[in-house]
């Protein structure tokens, strides 16, 4: 049971959250007309073994999207911030 320390709600079980996606891919600007950046955003991933920045949604809590730094080999978490406060 992964335990996530939500900045709003405190330490909670993973079952309150849903996993979102890789948080290192940035959505292209709204008016981006080229296909390439959108393809890269929607489909391509670094998929690292080890530390991974990723979005989680506290869907059964405060409904905030969070950016976690989590290790994909050990499931250890070393950082958790609100997505709206996380830097680019």
């Amino acid at each position: 049971m992964i335990r996530i320390n939500c900045p709003v709600c405190g330490l909670r079980n993973e079952t309150e959250f849903t996993y979102g996606a890789d948080a290192t891919v940035n959505r292209p600007a709204l008016d981006e007309q080229e296909t390439g950046p959108w393809l890269d955003y929607v489909f391509n991933r670094d998929n690292p073994r080890g530390w991974h920045k990723e979005y989680w949604h506290h869907v059964q809590g405060c409904r905030q999207w969070l950016v976690l730094e989590r290790n994909t080999l050990t499931h250890e978490i070393r950082g958790c911030r609100l997505a709206r406060e996380a830097g680019e």
Binding site: T18, R27, Y55, R63, W65, R84
Partner: peptide
Amino acid sequence: AAKVLAFSEHLLQTAWK
């Protein structure tokens, strides 16, 4: 319903802050 809401929240909290 749930999918649309979560998607909207994601956009508003990440890309369209």
